[in-house]
């Protein structure tokens, strides 16, 4: 799961995330507000889920992203 999310992020942000430990809005410069939306659109299509605005707002690092998507898919 985390690997897939990481791949999606790398494609959207156009950066290599391989050796980066902490992936969050604070550490990845390319993770700006516009790319955040691009990331959400990419995640929605990758996992076939529809994210709510509150969830989109909460997804500030890769751990939260994975947790929310897993919850969504469990529904």
């Amino acid at each position: 799961m985390k690997e897939i999310v990481k791949n999606v992020m790398a494609t959207v942000f156009k950066v290599d995330l391989k050796d980066i430990e902490e992936i969050s809005q604070h550490t990845i410069k390319k993770w700006d507000s516009l790319n955040h939306l691009n990331l959400m659109i990419a995640l929605e299509s990758e996992f076939g889920v529809s994210l709510e605005p509150e969830e989109i707002g909460a997804m500030v690092d890769i751990e939260t992203v994975c947790r929310i998507i897993e919850e969504k898919r469990a529904e």
């Binding site: 507000s33 516009l34 939306l37 691009n38 659109i41 299509s45 709510e52 605005p53 989109i56």
Partner: peptide, 14 residues
Amino acid sequence: WKYYYLSKMLINPE
């Protein structure tokens, strides 16, 4: 509409 309210995007980002 979701992205419209989240980011003032009128045209569907898809």
